[in-house]
Amino acid sequence: MGLLARADATRLAALFPDLPEHALLRGPETGAVMVRGRQGGTGAPFNLGEMSVTRCSVQLASGAVGHAHVQGRDKAHARRAAVIDALLQGDDSLRATVLKPLAEAEAARRQARAAKAGATKVEFFTMVRGED
């Protein structure tokens, strides 16, 4: 579900363009989720600020129910993610055709950023004071 939530909406639509018939149980609806942090990174929680999230729940003709909470305000994205969530309960083929390409693209993007960050790792040398 995290993968569908984080996915680029255009990419997801390209991977899975046609939605099967489904009924909307809730939404799609855009709202805000309060993101919490922890004092000192590890202590008691505090409210950092909100993020926009769109949620949707659908039911397929088979009866399978799917839910989605996706980052942002894209209702089509939330609906598509909810339908895929419902389909995944009976149809494992989507793992290869939809989830795998998304996971690979995400891993590649993360790897590239981590590698660029890795290239900026430094060694600081402390200069000794008073040395001639």
Binding site: G31, A32, V35, R36, R38, E50
Partner: peptide
């Protein structure tokens, strides 16, 4: 925007 809830505290570690 309606408030849909709150997140778990993010793990910055």
């Amino acid at each position: 925007l309606p408030r849909l809830g709150h997140s778990r505290p993010i793990d910055t570690g």
